[in-house]
Simulated assay, not measured.
Amino acid sequence: MTGFHEVRFPLRLALGTSGGPVRRTDIVNLSNGRENRNARWRNARRVYDAGSGVRSIADLYEVLEFFEARMGELYGFRFRDPLDWKSCGPTGNVSADDQWIGTGDGVQRTFQLIKTYGDNGGEARRTIAKPVAGTVRVSVDGEEISSDRFTLQAATGTVTFEATHVPPEGAEIRAGYEFDVPVRFDTDRIDVNLSAFNAGRIPAIPIKEILP
């Protein structure tokens, strides 16, 4: 991913964020009263507003410094979604069996981390491109393997098995992890409001996901 800095937006400021996934759907109303629906985007794109997490002068300066270091919209960065940042639910514990990421064929060694959202009606799969190093756990056919048997590319979200431990044909490969969202600022301007002594706010800090 070009134009990207492997740094995370300050976590304590991200906790006050609002926002979530956005999808684009074309809806055509037919003459008989029915409608046709077509997904314009294959994947959802997450958008956030981090302005509500800023409270103090120190917070204001931390955001200002981070914004300048990214040169506004120019460079992307990591962002932790306050609700969706693990391979399991927000109150669960990461396990090596959380998410299916592939099936072995005896040859393939590299697998992309993914997260599946679904129920009995359907499902959507999301590429996880920014896992958090040190949190990834992997299992093959239900047995967790040691971390020295695979290599994680934290900048792309791929897991590569060692040549001596290639998953056998038909083996189910699963993984658990924490992850960040690759994003960029969706503005080249930051408006600072010094509302009181040693306090202030930034009305809006729009942030948009960068799709891998």
Results as ranks from 00 to 15, higher is better:
residue 106 G to E: 13
residue 138 V to G: 13
residue 152 L to M: 07
residue 154 A to E: 15
residue 151 T to N: 12
residue 81 D to R: 01
residue 151 T to S: 12
residue 88 C to D: 12
residue 102 G to K: 05
residue 149 R to V: 03
residue 101 I to H: 08
residue 80 R to N: 05
residue 112 Q to F: 01
residue 87 S to C: 02
residue 136 V to T: 06
residue 117 Y to V: 05
residue 109 R to E: 13
residue 161 F to N: 12
residue 92 G to D: 15
residue 81 D to T: 00
residue 69 A to P: 11
residue 120 N to S: 15
residue 149 R to F: 11
residue 118 G to C: 02
residue 118 G to P: 02
residue 125 R to Q: 08
residue 146 S to H: 12
residue 148 D to W: 08
residue 79 F to W: 07
residue 146 S to C: 09
residue 159 V to D: 13
residue 160 T to K: 13
residue 100 W to D: 14
residue 135 T to F: 02
residue 146 S to N: 13
residue 150 F to P: 09
residue 126 R to V: 03
residue 130 K to R: 15
residue 93 N to P: 01
residue 125 R to L: 00
residue 70 R to F: 01
residue 85 W to S: 11
residue 153 Q to R: 12
residue 138 V to M: 11
residue 123 E to D: 10
residue 109 R to V: 03
residue 73 E to R: 12
residue 159 V to T: 09
residue 156 T to E: 12
residue 105 D to Q: 04
residue 105 D to K: 02
residue 112 Q to Y: 04
residue 67 F to V: 05
residue 134 G to T: 00
residue 106 G to K: 08
residue 125 R to Y: 00
residue 145 I to T: 12
residue 155 A to L: 01
residue 143 E to Y: 13
residue 156 T to N: 08
residue 115 K to G: 03
residue 115 K to S: 05
residue 107 V to P: 08
residue 119 D to V: 00
residue 90 P to D: 04
residue 157 G to L: 00
residue 145 I to R: 12
residue 128 I to H: 05
residue 127 T to C: 01
residue 148 D to Q: 11
residue 126 R to I: 02
residue 86 K to R: 11
residue 86 K to D: 04
residue 100 W to F: 14
residue 140 V to S: 14
residue 115 K to N: 04
residue 135 T to N: 07
residue 107 V to A: 14
residue 143 E to G: 11
residue 142 G to C: 06
residue 129 A to P: 01
residue 121 G to F: 05
residue 98 D to Q: 06
residue 112 Q to L: 06
residue 130 K to L: 10
residue 161 F to E: 14
